[in-house]
């Protein structure tokens, strides 16, 4: 595991939240066009999301 590029901490990053990924937003756009009543689907499907990780030491966002 690579060290944090800001503080150099080697602690394991922690997952803070899941956000809609670019693909998720694209699916949302397609659903808006094709069947708006179901445009909420990407927001409750994990495959449409990407995880946001943080360094537990300094809080910077990490991959």
């Amino acid at each position: 595991m690579a060290a944090c590029y800001i503080c150099g901490s080697e602690e394991r990053p922690v997952m803070v939240k899941k956000n809609l990924s670019a693909g998720g937003w694209a699916l949302f756009a397609v659903l808006v066009l094709f069947c708006i009543p179901l445009c909420w689907l990407p927001f409750v499907i994990d495959g449409c999301k990407e995880e946001e990780w943080k360094c537990p030491s300094c809080g910077v966002r990490r991959a």
Binding site: A22, A26, F28, V32
Partner: peptide, 20 residues
């Protein structure tokens, strides 16, 4: 670049939703 793709996609999605 990934960030830009992400923001453009999200912008288009928001735009479409607003238009709808």
């Amino acid at each position: 670049q990934t960030r830009l793709i992400y923001q453009v996609t999200r912008g288009i999605a928001f735009g479409l939703f607003g238009f709808y």
